[in-house]
Design a protein around this nucleic acid. Structure first.
Lengths: 355, 355
DNA sequence: CTGAAAGCGCTTACAG
DNA sequence: CTGAAAGCGCTTACAG
């Protein structure tokens, strides 16, 4: 004879976790009823619901989302594809996106591509194999336009693709930076930024050329560009520019690593910022604030806005189904944050034209 | 009559993606054979294999990993639970772990707990519902000891739990830092670090008291502690300590935000590092290097080692099954990196006792 | 070497 | 209000 207790012990699933079947058995109802009760289906008597919930709690039942996703065809995943999650900019964007995506019930799969189109392709395949409900990507060119997943681009975009996107005001931002230097009286302004192989590289570079032209300055080979987005490459470029005969009096950095490299080059040349050389940057390498001396005049960081906007846009795109594949574009406005590296003393004046 | 082409067009699965069934039909074989062919099963004729592969490629077939995971009971997920992925320390650890985990065929689900035990519990439940094969956690106390998932702790550990762990040499590291200051001749040394609610907080604090005692110094309420791990809290604490009658001549920071707060407090007091006040830190807030002036004497960063060790340990634990739940502990050795904030001039001498 | 059938853990029309 | 049955897309003994 089997002891009474043994009858109570549920026969767990083969993987050791209790299944719906075990909950149903423990509650003395059918599997269908157990399923409905747990998902608050209205057509379940309150008493039954309670019985089932109690059993589920007692067994520590946690529904298998792989199984329910398979059955309902509702994915619980969304992918985010970035060059590298340890780059602070992307880390912050991903975090902001993750917060809204998780609130919507999705689990986020973050994939790093290391700025490599092949790895991006691979990441997208992996996401497809997990039947991600949608994907956010900051592209390096590796996505396949025939991909059958709702997709939104952020930061780095494939211009040709028919997909919604949310981007920074790259050109406009660089223009604000250049104009500010011009207001300070600078005429020989150099640019060090990312290579135009990706949106953030190309739009900022274009923006620099346009702004220089608009200011009526001569644009004489003072733009340097790097594939690696490294401080080292920027340091080399800035050192070279500083050593030229007609050396620049001011630098525009096309991103935080570039600003850092420029700072190092200027220090190595025993020059001072802003006294000898002015510096403004698209992004601030000193994200926590207060480390870098002097603090940099930059654009306002918009990682959170970028991430949450892109996430909401993706959610929207997923809901739409494949019906409306309009290529909505959200462009976040650029705002200048004046600090000291440009030559301003924010404590005294906010408008550099007052100087 | 159906046109010939229609017969070729596979009937896709209800979610629009081709299924194994579609590949099989296109290749003119059974579903079982298609499955075997795609997974390189030896008992499949080369010609058949080729037919199937061709069909799969033509259709853009990507196996549904949810379905295969369900069938094989082999999870494709592993979870990593951290306080906040945007904290550089955790970002780097996660990245390193992700690299080894992905190489082993897993997808990584990163969960943020915001230093909240309840959110940690919730994260673990979510991971369970996705039938993660294992979990790496830097705990804030929210994990359930009855959790049925292979688990390894990293950085922040539950001492009571029976689980493998990989941690920094917190005590030893702080001792190296304190001893170095003592070698510089300091006698009034203050500590600002994290609250002892988590391993990195408690072990470092304990390490400070022990090191001070070992050096024969008086330990007079010069240790300040913060729950928030914020630079702001450290700035307040350091300002207070600097204003005291017997003000410290040197600070030990229990983590990077604390170092930053101390730097700010010292600057605000118009004191210089290291001339007026020496500073050493468990971690370097200037991760890219070269921003902070003077560069900080710290311990060597071990994020990559921590991440990859923990990942490998988890992989090992998963393989073992539930059989061997030994609580292996890996403790990474602490190494001092002498820079300038302690008073050393690394260009002149590496051994401070030479000064 | 290949195929038919069972089953992983769920959900949901369809009956009752 | 509840249950039996089919099926999501796979894999894998079991026959042949």
């Amino acid at each position: 004879m089997v002891p009474a207790r043994a009858k109570r012990t549920a026969t767990l699933g083969a993987d050791g976790t209790p299944r719906l079947e075990d909950v149903a058995a423990a509650a003395g109802v059918s599997i269908s009823t157990a399923s409905r009760a747990l998902r608050e289906h209205p057509a379940v008597r309150e008493a039954t619901r309670r019985k089932v919930r109690t059993a589920a709690n007692r067994l520590g039942y946690e529904p298998n989302r792989m199984a329910s996703a398979l059955r309902t065809r509702i994915s619980s995943f969304v992918g985010i594809v970035v060059p590298d999650i340890t780059i602070p900019f992307f880390g912050l964007v991903v975090k902001a996106a993750q917060d809204v995506l998780e609130a919507a019930g999705y689990q986020v799969l973050v994939m790093n591509t290391h700025r490599d189109a092949d790895q991006e392709r691979q990441a997208l395949r992996t996401l497809l194999s997990h039947r991600a409900g949608g994907v956010m990507v900051a592209t390096y060119g590796g996505h396949d336009r025939g991909l059958r997943i709702p997709l939104v681009f952020f930061a780095n975009v494939d211009e040709e693709a028919q997909a919604p996107r949310v981007v920074l005001s790259n050109r406009e931002g660089i223009r604000l930076l250049v104009e500010h230097l011009v207001d300070h009286g600078h005429r020989r302004i150099a640019y060090v930024g990312g290579a135009p192989v990706v949106t953030s590289g190309s739009e900022r570079l274009l923006g620099f050329h346009a702004a220089i032209a608009a200011a009526g300055l001569v644009d004489s080979a003072t733009a340097r560009v790097s594939d690696s987005w490294s401080a080292e490459s920027a340091e080399v470029a800035a050192t070279e520019l500083l050593g030229a005969s007609e050396a620049p009096t001011a630098f525009v950095a096309g991103g935080d690593p570039f600003a850092l490299g420029i700072v190092k080059a200027v220090r190595a040349a025993r020059l001072r910022i802003p006294d000898d050389i002015a510096l403004v940057s698209f992004q601030d390498p000193d994200r926590v604030g207060g480390i870098l001396e002097p603090p940099l005049t930059t654009l306002e960081g918009q990682e959170r806005e970028l991430g949450s906007h892109a996430a909401r846009l993706l959610l929207h795109t997923i809901e739409q189904g494949s019906s409306a594949t309009s290529a909505a574009e959200v462009r976040l406005p650029a705002r200048l944050v004046v600090r000291r590296s440009c030559g301003c003393d924010p404590a005294l004046a906010h408008d550099p034209t007052d100087l």
